[in-house]
Design a protein around this nucleic acid. Structure first.
Lengths: 209, 209
DNA sequence: CGATTAACGAAACTGGAGTCCCATTATGGG
DNA sequence: CCCATAATGGGACTCCAGTTTCGTTAATCG
């Protein structure tokens, strides 16, 4: 007897268990990108992953909880950051990276699906927020360097500048049918850079005109 | 005999049919705001609307298609626009309106759900895009006025400026756990205004540093 | 390498989402 | 005002997503 509350996969996480997780997460990503978040069933994912559907239901239970785990996995795969020496150059590099990701049919659909899933459950939302916190933190240093160079005023919220680059790209992805091209990426970077230079992202201060 | 392909509700759209639609759309909004897009069933909506579930299935069939109709309805309800005489003032008014809407528990949840639904079906996405096109068009004139006043350079994409105000607010709603407060709204408006003045939204031109 | 038992997987089972049928209601045209 | 029939609504039915059961496989510890 004794406490038998340990979730499956936590006591013997090696070998098969890890293999099953990797296989299921890959299959889940494929399925989300293909069918979207709504018409998705776990049995189909189990089939793709060549895993018993009982296992998928036992370890994840619901689509949203599976997506939460997928986000945990995605957060670990970090993309290399380039440095160009100027704020605009760095922000453009970031914007292009986001734009290429969202414009890619598979990745774009996957991100849409993941965002949709996050609106449906608190745990999944938390995982999504953590994912973006990590990505934002990775790029924030380039804004700090711009502050050090005197390009951007002291006291600027560096994270907010990075978010300002992504925001219009995600907004376009979700609310319009316009194509996400490089011009959109460059425009997002330029707008964020211009606003940052003008002091629009000073923290704790609503800025002056 | 003859063509009997007419969808239910199109031949006799008055009286009861209209009443049923209004009641179902209201119930759908409530349900979406409460349960989110995922765990939503049409039978529950029918119960809330005091309508037979057969009717809901016959006229809308799926959750996404019901959301598409809800968006059509939402698009018709236009909000009054205020004018302040300056670009920053107008953009702040817009930002505050969006912020108040998204920060409201019911409305915020509803918008999240509607966006999630739009990621799952082309027809619903189209309805969502139309909804935002209308909202953006309603506010665009204030940017044109700023151009006429010489506040913003000629050739600026007026719609893009309006989108730039909403984008960071929606981005925050979906990807972070931070509260959507008035400071966020003001910051979004100021950033958009600063970027617009700097010429970041010149159309067909990627701007200069 | 062998024992223990965590984790997996096949198959049978179940509940409720979505469909079908037909009687009832009430719209819109004459 | 009346008729033809569009549209609704209750209830029976179906089918499959999700659960339960139990035998099999393999991870970890000694």
């Amino acid at each position: 007897m004794g406490a038998e509350g340990a979730d499956p996969g936590t006591v013997r996480p090696g070998g098969r268990t890890a293999r099953v997780r990797a296989s299921v997460l890959r299959a889940a990503g494929d399925a989300l990108a293909e069918h979207g978040f709504a018409h998705l069933d776990l049995a189909d994912i189990a089939r793709r992953a060549e895993v018993g559907k009982t296992t998928v239901y036992r370890r994840w239970g619901t689509v949203t909880s599976l997506v939460a785990d997928l986000l945990l996995d995605m957060a670990e795969q970090s993309l290399p950051r380039t440095e160009t020496g100027s704020l605009l150059g760095d922000l453009k590099a970031n914007a292009r990276l986001v734009q290429r990701t969202l414009a890619d049919p598979r990745q774009g659909a996957l991100f849409k699906a993941v965002i949709a899933a996050a609106t449906c459950e608190a745990r999944t939302a938390e995982a999504l927020h953590r994912f973006y916190d990590i990505r934002v933190k990775e790029w924030a240093p380039c804004v700090q360097q711009a502050i050090d160079r005197g390009e951007v005023p002291e006291g600027t919220d560096v994270h907010e500048v990075i978010r300002a680059v992504s925001a219009p790209l995600y907004y376009r992805l979700l609310t319009s049918s316009d194509r996400l091209d490089e011009a959109a990426a460059d425009q997002a970077a330029e707008a964020a850079a211009a606003a940052a230079r003008a002091g629009a992202y000073l923290r704790g201060d609503e800025g002056r005109a």
